[in-house]
Design a protein around this nucleic acid. Sequence first.
DNA 1: CATCATCCGTAGCCATTGCTACATTTATAC
DNA 2: GTATAAATGTAGCAATGGCTACGGATGATG
Lengths: 136, 136
Amino acid sequence: MKKKIKARSVPFSQTRSRHASETAEDYVEAVMELVEEKGECRVLDLARYFNVSHVTVSRIVKRLQDEDLLYTKPYKPVELTAKGSKLAKRVKERHLIVLAFLTKLGVDKANAEIDSEGIEHHVGSKTLAAMKNFLK
Amino acid sequence: MKKKIKARSVPFSQTRSRHASETAEDYVEAVMELVEEKGECRVLDLARYFNVSHVTVSRIVKRLQDEDLLYTKPYKPVELTAKGSKLAKRVKERHLIVLAFLTKLGVDKANAEIDSEGIEHHVGSKTLAAMKNFLK
DNA sequence: CATCATCCGTAGCCATTGCTACATTTATAC
DNA sequence: GTATAAATGTAGCAATGGCTACGGATGATG
Ligand SMILES: [Mn+2]
Ligand SMILES: [Mn+2]
Ligand SMILES: [Mn+2]
Ligand SMILES: [Mn+2]
Protein backbone atom coordinates (compact mmCIF):
# COMPACT_ATOMS: atom_id res chain seq x y z
CA MET A 1 0.00 0.00 0.00
CA LYS A 2 1.10 3.48 -0.89
CA LYS A 3 2.15 5.70 1.96
CA LYS A 4 -0.44 8.35 2.70
CA ILE A 5 0.89 11.84 2.39
CA LYS A 6 -0.71 14.31 4.72
CA ALA A 7 -2.86 16.76 2.77
CA ARG A 8 -1.17 20.11 3.06
CA SER A 9 -2.52 21.86 0.02
CA VAL A 10 -5.21 23.79 1.90
CA PRO A 11 -2.84 25.91 4.01
CA PHE A 12 -0.77 26.80 0.96
CA SER A 13 -3.78 27.71 -1.15
CA GLN A 14 -5.09 29.86 1.66
CA THR A 15 -1.71 31.55 2.07
CA ARG A 16 -1.57 32.37 -1.65
CA SER A 17 -5.06 33.78 -1.48
CA ARG A 18 -4.11 35.97 1.49
CA HIS A 19 -1.05 37.26 -0.29
CA ALA A 20 -3.28 38.20 -3.20
CA SER A 21 -5.26 40.56 -0.95
CA GLU A 22 -2.24 41.86 0.93
CA THR A 23 -1.48 44.83 -1.31
CA ALA A 24 -5.07 46.03 -1.24
CA GLU A 25 -5.13 45.78 2.55
CA ASP A 26 -1.87 47.64 3.05
CA TYR A 27 -2.85 50.37 0.59
CA VAL A 28 -6.27 51.18 2.02
CA GLU A 29 -4.75 51.21 5.50
CA ALA A 30 -2.00 53.55 4.30
CA VAL A 31 -4.41 55.90 2.58
CA MET A 32 -6.51 56.11 5.72
CA GLU A 33 -3.49 56.90 7.88
CA LEU A 34 -2.04 59.44 5.47
CA VAL A 35 -5.34 61.26 5.12
CA GLU A 36 -5.61 61.39 8.90
CA GLU A 37 -2.06 62.63 9.37
CA LYS A 38 -1.64 64.96 6.39
CA GLY A 39 -5.16 65.81 5.34
CA GLU A 40 -4.64 64.23 1.95
CA CYS A 41 -2.83 61.29 0.41
CA ARG A 42 -0.72 61.80 -2.71
CA VAL A 43 0.94 59.18 -4.86
CA LEU A 44 4.33 60.27 -3.59
CA ASP A 45 3.21 59.97 0.01
CA LEU A 46 2.40 56.35 -0.63
CA ALA A 47 5.69 55.83 -2.46
CA ARG A 48 7.63 57.11 0.56
CA TYR A 49 5.39 55.21 2.96
CA PHE A 50 6.04 51.87 1.27
CA ASN A 51 9.55 52.69 0.05
CA VAL A 52 8.77 51.97 -3.59
CA SER A 53 8.81 54.14 -6.69
CA HIS A 54 5.90 56.39 -7.58
CA VAL A 55 5.37 54.28 -10.69
CA THR A 56 4.66 51.18 -8.64
CA VAL A 57 2.19 53.13 -6.53
CA SER A 58 0.50 54.67 -9.53
CA ARG A 59 -0.14 51.32 -11.18
CA ILE A 60 -1.44 49.72 -8.00
CA VAL A 61 -3.72 52.67 -7.27
CA LYS A 62 -5.19 52.22 -10.74
CA ARG A 63 -5.89 48.56 -10.06
CA LEU A 64 -7.45 49.28 -6.68
CA GLN A 65 -9.61 51.93 -8.28
CA ASP A 66 -10.87 49.25 -10.68
CA GLU A 67 -11.66 47.16 -7.62
CA ASP A 68 -13.63 50.06 -6.17
CA LEU A 69 -11.39 50.45 -3.14
CA LEU A 70 -9.75 53.76 -4.04
CA TYR A 71 -10.74 56.81 -6.04
CA THR A 72 -8.52 59.34 -7.76
CA LYS A 73 -8.18 61.46 -10.87
CA PRO A 74 -4.95 62.36 -12.68
CA TYR A 75 -2.75 64.62 -10.54
CA LYS A 76 -5.30 64.53 -7.75
CA PRO A 77 -5.06 63.01 -4.26
CA VAL A 78 -5.99 59.41 -3.62
CA GLU A 79 -9.14 58.81 -1.61
CA LEU A 80 -10.93 55.83 -0.13
CA THR A 81 -14.25 54.71 -1.49
CA ALA A 82 -16.92 53.57 0.94
CA LYS A 83 -15.84 49.99 0.32
CA GLY A 84 -12.18 50.93 0.77
CA SER A 85 -12.90 52.79 3.96
CA LYS A 86 -14.74 49.84 5.42
CA LEU A 87 -11.88 47.51 4.54
CA ALA A 88 -9.33 49.96 5.95
CA LYS A 89 -11.03 50.06 9.32
CA ARG A 90 -11.15 46.28 9.58
CA VAL A 91 -7.54 45.94 8.48
CA LYS A 92 -6.24 48.63 10.78
CA GLU A 93 -8.04 47.18 13.77
CA ARG A 94 -6.61 43.75 13.06
CA HIS A 95 -3.13 45.24 12.61
CA LEU A 96 -3.32 47.05 15.95
CA ILE A 97 -4.42 43.88 17.71
CA VAL A 98 -1.51 41.90 16.24
CA LEU A 99 0.90 44.67 17.21
CA ALA A 100 -0.42 44.89 20.76
CA PHE A 101 -0.36 41.12 21.00
CA LEU A 102 3.30 40.83 20.00
CA THR A 103 4.18 43.64 22.38
CA LYS A 104 2.39 41.99 25.29
CA LEU A 105 4.18 38.77 24.38
CA GLY A 106 7.44 40.57 25.09
CA VAL A 107 8.64 41.63 21.65
CA ASP A 108 10.29 45.05 21.49
CA LYS A 109 8.51 47.82 19.62
CA ALA A 110 10.73 47.87 16.53
CA ASN A 111 10.48 44.13 15.94
CA ALA A 112 6.78 44.03 16.79
CA GLU A 113 6.17 46.68 14.14
CA ILE A 114 8.20 44.81 11.54
CA ASP A 115 6.73 41.37 12.19
CA SER A 116 3.14 42.55 12.59
CA GLU A 117 3.27 44.16 9.15
CA GLY A 118 3.55 40.72 7.60
CA ILE A 119 1.74 38.59 10.18
CA GLU A 120 -1.46 40.67 10.09
CA HIS A 121 -2.42 39.26 6.69
CA HIS A 122 -2.20 35.66 7.88
CA VAL A 123 -4.30 35.99 11.01
CA GLY A 124 -7.70 34.37 10.53
CA SER A 125 -10.74 35.09 12.67
CA LYS A 126 -10.00 32.25 15.09
CA THR A 127 -6.42 33.34 15.66
CA LEU A 128 -7.49 36.96 15.98
CA ALA A 129 -10.02 35.98 18.63
CA ALA A 130 -7.34 34.05 20.50
CA MET A 131 -5.05 37.10 20.40
CA LYS A 132 -7.81 39.38 21.65
CA ASN A 133 -8.49 36.95 24.46
CA PHE A 134 -4.80 36.92 25.41
CA LEU A 135 -4.83 40.71 25.57
CA LYS A 136 -7.66 40.77 28.10
CA MET B 1 5.96 73.39 9.61
CA LYS B 2 5.19 70.25 7.72
CA LYS B 3 3.61 67.44 9.65
CA LYS B 4 6.04 64.61 10.31
CA ILE B 5 4.88 61.32 8.89
CA LYS B 6 5.91 58.34 10.94
CA ALA B 7 8.54 56.33 9.09
CA ARG B 8 6.93 53.07 8.13
CA SER B 9 9.05 52.03 5.19
CA VAL B 10 11.24 49.63 7.17
CA PRO B 11 8.48 47.14 8.05
CA PHE B 12 7.28 47.05 4.46
CA SER B 13 10.76 46.58 3.03
CA GLN B 14 11.38 43.79 5.48
CA THR B 15 8.07 42.15 4.63
CA ARG B 16 8.88 42.26 0.90
CA SER B 17 12.26 40.73 1.60
CA ARG B 18 10.68 37.93 3.63
CA HIS B 19 8.20 37.19 0.89
CA ALA B 20 11.11 36.90 -1.51
CA SER B 21 12.53 34.00 0.54
CA GLU B 22 9.18 32.38 1.23
CA THR B 23 9.10 30.06 -1.77
CA ALA B 24 12.58 28.77 -1.08
CA GLU B 25 11.70 28.13 2.55
CA ASP B 26 8.47 26.30 1.76
CA TYR B 27 10.11 24.19 -0.95
CA VAL B 28 13.08 22.96 1.06
CA GLU B 29 10.74 22.16 3.95
CA ALA B 30 8.44 20.26 1.58
CA VAL B 31 11.27 18.30 0.00
CA MET B 32 12.54 17.30 3.42
CA GLU B 33 9.11 16.11 4.52
CA LEU B 34 8.35 14.25 1.31
CA VAL B 35 11.69 12.48 1.36
CA GLU B 36 11.03 11.46 4.94
CA GLU B 37 7.52 10.25 4.23
CA LYS B 38 7.91 8.68 0.79
CA GLY B 39 11.60 7.98 0.44
CA GLU B 40 11.89 10.35 -2.48
CA CYS B 41 10.43 13.61 -3.68
CA ARG B 42 9.16 13.94 -7.26
CA VAL B 43 8.03 17.04 -9.08
CA LEU B 44 4.45 15.79 -8.99
CA ASP B 45 4.63 15.19 -5.25
CA LEU B 46 5.48 18.85 -4.80
CA ALA B 47 2.73 19.88 -7.21
CA ARG B 48 0.14 17.99 -5.16
CA TYR B 49 1.66 19.20 -1.90
CA PHE B 50 1.37 22.87 -2.88
CA ASN B 51 -1.70 22.47 -5.08
CA VAL B 52 -0.05 24.01 -8.14
CA SER B 53 0.73 22.60 -11.57
CA HIS B 54 3.82 20.51 -12.22
CA VAL B 55 5.04 23.28 -14.51
CA THR B 56 5.15 25.79 -11.70
CA VAL B 57 7.07 23.31 -9.55
CA SER B 58 9.50 22.45 -12.30
CA ARG B 59 10.45 26.06 -12.92
CA ILE B 60 10.86 26.86 -9.23
CA VAL B 61 12.97 23.74 -8.66
CA LYS B 62 15.25 24.95 -11.43
CA ARG B 63 15.65 28.33 -9.78
CA LEU B 64 16.34 26.79 -6.37
CA GLN B 65 18.90 24.51 -7.96
CA ASP B 66 20.64 27.63 -9.27
CA GLU B 67 20.59 28.94 -5.71
CA ASP B 68 22.21 25.69 -4.53
CA LEU B 69 19.30 24.70 -2.33
CA LEU B 70 18.03 21.76 -4.37
CA TYR B 71 19.56 19.22 -6.71
CA THR B 72 17.93 17.24 -9.47
CA LYS B 73 18.43 15.90 -12.99
CA PRO B 74 15.79 15.58 -15.71
CA TYR B 75 13.17 12.96 -14.80
CA LYS B 76 14.92 12.30 -11.52
CA PRO B 77 13.78 12.96 -7.93
CA VAL B 78 14.43 16.28 -6.24
CA GLU B 79 16.96 16.29 -3.43
CA LEU B 80 18.25 18.78 -0.90
CA THR B 81 21.78 20.09 -1.09
CA ALA B 82 23.73 20.52 2.13
CA LYS B 83 22.75 24.17 2.12
CA GLY B 84 19.11 23.30 1.41
CA SER B 85 19.05 20.71 4.15
CA LYS B 86 20.39 23.16 6.69
CA LEU B 87 17.78 25.74 5.69
CA ALA B 88 15.03 23.11 5.79
CA LYS B 89 15.84 22.16 9.36
CA ARG B 90 15.80 25.77 10.53
CA VAL B 91 12.56 26.48 8.68
CA LYS B 92 10.79 23.36 9.90
CA GLU B 93 11.76 24.00 13.49
CA ARG B 94 10.43 27.56 13.29
CA HIS B 95 7.24 26.32 11.65
CA LEU B 96 6.65 23.77 14.40
CA ILE B 97 7.16 26.39 17.07
CA VAL B 98 4.66 28.75 15.44
CA LEU B 99 2.17 25.91 15.08
CA ALA B 100 2.57 24.81 18.70
CA PHE B 101 2.33 28.42 19.81
CA LEU B 102 -0.98 29.04 18.03
CA THR B 103 -2.33 25.78 19.36
CA LYS B 104 -1.39 26.64 22.93
CA LEU B 105 -2.98 30.04 22.39
CA GLY B 106 -6.25 28.20 21.82
CA VAL B 107 -6.52 28.05 18.05
CA ASP B 108 -7.99 24.82 16.67
CA LYS B 109 -5.71 22.50 14.71
CA ALA B 110 -7.08 23.27 11.24
CA ASN B 111 -6.80 27.02 11.63
CA ALA B 112 -3.45 26.81 13.38
CA GLU B 113 -2.12 24.84 10.42
CA ILE B 114 -3.49 27.34 7.91
CA ASP B 115 -2.33 30.47 9.70
CA SER B 116 1.08 29.13 10.68
CA GLU B 117 1.85 28.39 7.04
CA GLY B 118 1.87 32.11 6.33
CA ILE B 119 2.91 33.50 9.70
CA GLU B 120 6.10 31.42 9.92
CA HIS B 121 7.83 33.56 7.30
CA HIS B 122 7.22 36.78 9.23
CA VAL B 123 8.48 35.64 12.60
CA GLY B 124 11.83 37.22 13.40
CA SER B 125 14.28 35.91 15.98
CA LYS B 126 12.87 38.13 18.74
CA THR B 127 9.29 37.05 18.12
CA LEU B 128 10.38 33.44 17.85
CA ALA B 129 12.13 33.68 21.19
CA ALA B 130 8.99 35.18 22.74
CA MET B 131 6.91 32.31 21.35
CA LYS B 132 9.34 29.73 22.68
CA ASN B 133 9.23 31.39 26.04
CA PHE B 134 5.42 31.32 26.05
CA LEU B 135 5.51 27.59 25.29
CA LYS B 136 7.63 26.85 28.36
C1' DC C 1 3.00 85.79 -16.19
C1' DA C 2 7.17 83.34 -16.85
C1' DT C 3 10.20 80.17 -14.68
C1' DC C 4 11.35 76.30 -12.03
C1' DA C 5 10.71 72.57 -8.94
C1' DT C 6 7.72 69.06 -7.79
C1' DC C 7 4.40 65.70 -8.81
C1' DC C 8 2.55 62.35 -11.76
C1' DG C 9 1.72 59.58 -16.04
C1' DT C 10 3.51 56.57 -19.71
C1' DA C 11 6.63 53.53 -22.06
C1' DG C 12 9.11 49.72 -21.53
C1' DC C 13 12.13 46.56 -19.06
C1' DC C 14 12.69 42.47 -15.55
C1' DA C 15 11.54 38.59 -12.12
C1' DT C 16 8.27 35.68 -10.08
C1' DT C 17 4.57 32.55 -10.00
C1' DG C 18 0.31 31.06 -11.77
C1' DC C 19 -1.81 28.54 -16.05
C1' DT C 20 -2.86 25.32 -20.60
C1' DA C 21 -1.32 22.75 -24.43
C1' DC C 22 1.78 19.81 -26.34
C1' DA C 23 6.16 16.94 -26.68
C1' DT C 24 9.18 13.71 -24.73
C1' DT C 25 10.89 10.44 -21.50
C1' DT C 26 10.31 6.80 -18.25
C1' DA C 27 7.92 3.14 -16.14
C1' DT C 28 4.29 -0.41 -16.29
C1' DA C 29 1.50 -4.05 -18.35
C1' DC C 30 0.80 -7.32 -21.41
C1' DG D 1 9.41 -6.14 -26.95
C1' DT D 2 5.63 -3.25 -27.70
C1' DA D 3 1.77 -0.67 -26.30
C1' DT D 4 0.04 2.25 -22.89
C1' DA D 5 0.13 5.16 -18.81
C1' DA D 6 2.48 8.32 -15.95
C1' DA D 7 5.89 11.75 -15.14
C1' DT D 8 8.46 15.48 -16.66
C1' DG D 9 9.96 19.03 -19.81
C1' DT D 10 9.04 23.00 -23.08
C1' DA D 11 6.56 26.77 -25.31
C1' DG D 12 4.04 30.48 -24.54
C1' DC D 13 0.51 33.37 -22.11
C1' DA D 14 -1.21 36.38 -18.03
C1' DA D 15 -1.10 39.02 -13.65
C1' DT D 16 1.54 41.27 -10.22
C1' DG D 17 4.89 44.27 -8.49
C1' DG D 18 9.61 45.91 -8.75
C1' DC D 19 12.60 49.40 -11.63
C1' DT D 20 14.61 53.62 -14.85
C1' DA D 21 13.96 57.10 -18.20
C1' DC D 22 11.45 60.58 -20.01
C1' DG D 23 7.82 64.00 -20.69
C1' DG D 24 3.73 66.59 -19.37
C1' DA D 25 0.95 68.89 -15.66
C1' DT D 26 0.65 71.58 -11.53
C1' DG D 27 1.74 74.88 -8.34
C1' DA D 28 5.02 78.03 -6.12
C1' DT D 29 8.32 81.97 -6.62
C1' DG D 30 9.80 85.88 -8.28
MN1 LIG E 1 0.93 44.56 6.06
MN1 LIG F 1 -0.66 47.05 7.92
MN1 LIG G 1 4.93 28.59 4.69
MN1 LIG H 1 3.10 36.78 3.95
